[in-house]
Design a binder for these strands. Structure first.
Lengths: 257, 257
DNA sequence: CCTTGAGCTTGACGTAGCGTCAACTCGTAG
DNA sequence: CTACGAGTTGACGCTACGTCAAGCTCAAGG
């Protein structure tokens, strides 16, 4: 007489059958993803063949990396499965790009360190943004502005200078990263960056508006145009698109001042 | 008179300077990553230029994706920075591969579903492993074994059959995945898989040892050899390397029975 | 009938890196 | 004196469970 096929399995049996832990099964019950087909008077969980089929599907989707809530939605409506997978795939692609960029950054940093460089943000400025270009500054905002900024810069200790440099560098990379992500110039995030940019500028003596706690409106707008027009600045903000994004964000910010 | 450069900043000022939130700074203090240079009698945190330099480095490394404990170690010993980055880079590469494979799986699954397929583990068996090949089974373990397995299979409902199919499929993918990760055949993980494999086999009538709760030793070893020798089975476990891994793990398991 | 032991139950904490209240205190300007 | 902005210390939330801990259930053995 052949062994009759079971119609119900205990939680441990299911665990051994599928290779998951009983803790996981209890978790799936707790979050409503996979309630047992029957719960005994003693609280024991029992699973039937249909429930196991559902579990298999859960495990397939989990293996593809979908979060549990997405799995729940996908299973409750077969229609949603494809949509969920497509959505998931696009997120995977995004994540892939991020990883690739990050790995490249780490590699560059390693190379820099190996060559005796110090640990600092990528694409560091040699000095501090526009103020490093004497002719640019004097031409646009006068001799006094440059002299004043230069004196201020020389008056700082190396540690203080480094703080300023890194601050400028991080601001630049944050701009570039936001631009790469396609953030809107008028968004809260971009405006927060513009705010930081203005704060940063207002700390530099010689800046039009310095002492008022914030730079002059037309100074901000003019700077934005310069970032776009001048290769050297555009590079800092991630090329022409990046600089354009910065300019637009700064203009919006200036308009709301 | 030019503005004197500050020598100390409050937590909010630092937050604005660097673009992080004050909550983050408190967190870094709490975990010992970046204690303020001074704490007032009132509990206020104050940061000086040197502390800010350390913060910059923290942010650079964080931007590269290092976990906070690794950042702490790297900063406390400059020597460790390079090692930490190289270590991190290798993890990034591994993660990249995983993502690539995962994305490919999702794509295949989407394609399968679009073509009207059902949601199941990849590389599904048409039937259930070796028992699907009549001549193989009868030649090696006799006519009765096949007939008995076949009757058992036909006697199940479609839902029950699907449970069995998926169970076999997941076991196979778990084997293949472990093999790809370079798991040792004698490791706990591989032996747990062997255990699952034995459990699975022992549920099939006709299996030598069926009824005793576990398959016969020489049956397990023989199966392992067959997986390696026969293309059709090797493919199931991820090619020749995968099948070899399964065979070795099964042999170790059988020896310890 | 009692004990053992395997199997089951329900909590509850830990994980990484903060975001987000909540409830208070501090310090300065009006 | 009071309001308000800035600071403080908790403490919970998030993802998907792993890992005890304490106690109940059930079938087998003495």
């Amino acid at each position: 007489m052949p062994t009759r096929t079971r119609t119900e399995w205990s939680i441990q049996e299911v665990a051994r059958l599928t290779g998951v832990t009983s803790r996981t099964l209890r978790h799936y019950d707790a979050v409503g993803l996979l309630p047992p087909s029957r719960v005994g008077d003693n609280g024991y969980r029992w699973y039937d063949a249909l429930t196991l089929v559902r579990l298999q599907r859960v495990l397939v989707l989990r293996g593809l990396g979908l979060p549990l809530p997405a799995i729940a939605r996908a299973l409750d409506d077969e229609q949603d499965t494809l949509a969920a997978l497509r959505d998931h795939l696009s997120r995977l692609r995004t994540e892939q790009e991020r990883l690739t960029r990050r790995a490249a950054s780490v590699e560059r940093t390693i190379t820099t360190l190996e060559e005796g460089g110090r640990l600092m943000a990528e694409d560091m400025f040699d000095g501090f943004d526009h103020t490093q270009y004497k002719e640019e500054v004097t031409e646009r905002w006068g001799e006094d502005a440059y002299a004043s900024g230069d004196r201020w810069w020389r008056g700082m200790s190396p540690a203080e200078q480094q703080v300023w440099q890194e601050r400028a560098a991080r601001l630049a990379t944050d701009w570039a990263e936001a631009a790469a992500r396609g953030v809107e110039p008028a968004s809260d995030e971009a405006q927060a960056l513009a705010q930081r940019h203005a704060d940063w500028l207002s700390g530099i003596p010689g800046t039009p508006g310095h002492g008022t706690g914030r730079p002059a409106k037309e100074y901000l707008v003019g700077l934005g145009e310069m970032y776009v027009a001048d290769e050297r600045f555009a590079k800092t903000y991630g090329g022409t698109e990046g600089a354009t994004f910065v300019r637009d964000a700064l203009r919006v910010y200036a308009d709301s001042m």
